[in-house]
């Protein structure tokens, strides 16, 4: 994607990648083939699109035991499109839409034929939908297994050996957070009360980052953060707040001093990937990795608390519906879905 982003920037084009939450981070497969197919579809899309955008969407659906997934990758463009009568010839070798295409756009007409063959070699299928003047969508799907999780080296490097202070009154949360932290190579220092946390900070124990639970009896996460700031005015300790959806304390979180106190505010249960990304961002400082990460900075999971709204989703396509609900959920919204029949009845 990065390779082609520059090409897109030259033209008047947006290049966007949308990876659905259900897509495994790692899959078992022939990465060279996959890359070749994707590059071919993307460069075609960019070549034939003069205005608008090229979007890559990746979706995955579990389809069996042992992490088997059906992966669907669609490259959609808002380009010149392909006439219906030409679609059949598209995947044939040395074929282009017509000879004027060759003159204007160049190319051998081999790319799609090869891509289709490669997808078939992966046991998958390729399809195209297109409308002249509106654009084309090339998609392919194949089955593969989700790979075992292995941390990216640069994240691992940032987190390795860093002291993380974990403050949570709930034993299960403490256990989970501590375990996650050790799995990521961090050195967790876990306490059950704000008082214990302050004692250790006053004793000049070294911490690189802190994770504070919001809802704790007596002193909550925000008050604890204020006291930590007061105790260590010179040295800034980056802090992450874990809040709960719907908790009393969460209301007005955005108005108070919480945004200034915390580098990240995550809703519990915090997705491990997002928590780890937030930790890396705060620990990475101005390192180049930190900047790269900023591009994919975690979605504001407290949006639903900051801007509470009742949302109705009127979307008939089941997959789109699921994807939209998942995205809304990640922002802290629980939307209702309008069932098609009821919708017809209630909107006379």
């Amino acid at each position: 994607m990065e390779l082609l982003a520059c090409k897109a920037r030259d033209g008047n084009l947006e290049l966007a990648a949308l990876i659905d939450p259900g897509v495994p981070r790692r899959i078992v497969g022939d990465v060279t083939r996959l890359r070749q197919v994707l590059m071919n579809l993307l460069s075609n899309a960019l070549k034939f699109t003069h205005e608008g955008e090229v979007t890559v969407r990746i979706e995955a659906e579990p389809c069996g035991e042992g992490g088997l997934h059906e992966i669907r990758i669609a490259v959609r463009d808002t380009g010149i499109g392909i006439p219906a009568e030409r679609l059949g010839r598209l995947f044939k070798a040395f074929s282009q839409v017509d000879s004027s295409t060759t003159r204007r756009y160049g190319g051998s007409g081999l790319g799609l034929a090869i891509s289709k063959r490669l997808v078939e070699l992966m046991g998958g299928t390729m399809a195209v939908e297109s409308e002249v003047g509106r654009g084309s969508t090339f998609s392919f799907s194949f089955q593969t297994r989700a790979g075992t999780e292995a941390a990216e080296p640069e994240l691992q490097r940032i987190l390795a050996g860093k002291h993380v202070l974990i403050v949570d009154d709930n034993e299960t949360n403490r256990f989970v957070l501590t375990r996650q932290a050790s799995n990521w190579g961090l050195d967790p220092r876990t306490v059950a009360t704000p008082a214990q946390a302050l004692t250790r900070i006053e004793a000049k124990e070294h911490f690189d980052v802190a994770i504070l639970d919001l809802c704790m009896p007596e002193v909550d996460g925000i008050e604890l953060a204020r006291q930590i700031r007061k105790t260590r005015p010179g040295r800034r300790l980056p802090m992450i707040l874990l809040s709960s959806v719907g908790a009393e304390e969460t209301r007005g979180l955005a108005e108070g001093d919480a945004p200034a106190l915390f580098g990240a505010i995550l809703t519990k249960p915090a997705h491990p990937d997002r928590l780890r990304a937030a930790l890396a961002q705060l620990l990475g400082g101005d390192a180049s990795v930190g900047r790269e990460r900023a591009e994919s900075k975690p979605i504001d999971s407290s949006l639903g608390q900051r801007l509470p709204m009742r949302i109705l989703l009127a979307e008939d396509n089941h997959i789109n519906q699921k994807v939209a609900l998942k995205m809304l959920e990640r922002m802290g919204y629980i939307a209702d879905v309008a069932p098609p029949t009821a919708r017809r009845r209630s909107w006379p």
Binding site: L313, A314, A324
Partner: peptide, 27 residues
Amino acid sequence: MTRVPYDVVLMDVQMPDVDGIEATKRI
């Protein structure tokens, strides 16, 4: 629609039966 006043409707435009444009006009 009438029972629960929603603040926001996320409306798919290409729906069968009543499309999003028509639904919006009716609302």
